[in-house]
């Protein structure tokens, strides 16, 4: 791998983490003393992706803005890696009129035509729309592809299986990605899934499947390179399952009493681990690490300032945009 590519993967992961640390801070900043999920600058459920950045960085490095990505209720890392504008993303999370959905969507419902990005708060239901985007790309011979992302819990949904079959049957340019973070909220993978790897499920639909272990960003990048190339060449869909990690709760406020892997989390954090590896390989210096972090923080601060200074939607406008 080229140094430049490795550095790019690292920078993407740092940007995503930096953004989510800022959201984490503001989310909890004004929910005390009586914690109220609906209170504060950022209300509602908040599903942060810390730990899962290697999936987003490794896959999206192969995409252009005209390729589609459909994500889940935990979408920020994918949105950022796919190049979504941080300001309109932040403004949507803060529920502002300048947000992607003018405050009508929220953090689980991000729709960005400029990057063909969308997400769904319903488990596995982001897969079917990706088929349609891929269908349109194929019909118009644009050479673009659609990437559909879900978690391992979603792989037990009907939408997942229907989508794999249809994509294979119609030879659609789709890359299916499963983020296996071990936990479907509180249910461990061993309690939900009868097969060791969802790659095997892909094979059963005639789709090449590959499982990437150890949350390896470079492993994801390599597997995604093969899958994206296959889709672009017209050879059809592929699946990549990544064994990743959810460093924080299912949502903010989740006490995670059910978890038996808490003591291993800090050593499973992929960002410091990748930084160490890049320093060892002479790709990155400690000074550069600090500079990359500082740049990310500055960009995030600018986006969040934009969000916080943006107008709040007027209640009298709540019925706008129901119909085109």
């Amino acid at each position: 791998m080229e140094d430049k590519t490795r550095l790019g993967l690292y920078e993407t992961m740092v940007m995503s983490r930096s953004f989510e640390e800022a959201i984490l801070h503001d989310y909890h900043a004004d929910k005390t003393p009586a914690w109220d999920i609906g209170a504060g600058l950022i209300p509602g459920e908040m599903h942060l992706s810390a730990g899962q950045e290697p999936v987003a960085a490794g896959v999206c490095a192969h995409l252009g803005a005209n390729d589609a990505v459909t994500a889940t209720h935990r979408p920020h890392h994918l949105a950022i890696a796919h190049g979504m504008d941080l300001k309109t993303l932040a403004a949507e999370i803060y529920g502002r009129e300048t947000g992607l959905g003018r405050g009508r969507g929220g953090h689980m419902h991000l729709f960005d035509p400029s990057t063909h990005f969308s997400c769904s708060g319903i488990i596995a239901e982001g897969y079917p729309p990706a088929l349609g985007q891929a269908f349109s790309f194929k019909h118009h011979k644009t050479g673009n592809i659609a990437v559909a992302v879900t978690g391992e819990g979603a792989a037990n949904q009907g939408a997942f299986h229907e989508s794999l079959n249809l994509a294979a049957l119609w030879n659609l340019p789709v890359v299916f990605v499963v983020e296996d973070n071990d936990w479907a909220i509180s249910v461990p993978r061993r309690g939900s899934t009868a097969v060791a790897s969802n790659a095997a499920r892909a094979e059963s639909y005639g789709i090449p499947g590959e499982r990437v272990e150890n949350n390896s960003v470079e492993g994801v990048w390599e597997a995604a390179g093969r899958a994206v190339e296959r889709a672009r060449s017209g050879a059809g869909p592929s699946m990549i399952e990544v064994h990743t990690v959810r460093l924080w709760g299912h949502f903010e406020g989740d006490a995670q009493a059910y978890r038996d892997d808490m003591d291993q989390l800090s050593e499973r954090d992929p960002i410091p681990a990748y930084a160490d590896e890049l320093v060892r390989d002479g790709v990155l210096t400690p000074d550069q690490i600090e500079a990359i972090a500082a740049d990310a923080k500055a960009a995030v601060a600018e986006a969040i300032d934009f969000a916080k200074s943006s107008p709040i939607p007027s209640g009298s406008e709540a019925s706008r945009y129901v119909f085109a």
Binding site: E125, P128, P129, G132, A134, F135, S136, A159, S163, N165
Partner: peptide
């Protein structure tokens, strides 16, 4: 190519319709 019989997978093809519409079809 324009009149397509689908598998009995309503979730998949309803979603496919939505995704195709979003992309200009």
């Amino acid at each position: 190519s324009r009149i397509l019989d689908t598998p009995i997978s309503e979730t998949a093809f309803m979603g496919l319709a939505t995704g195709a519409a979003v992309e200009g079809m």
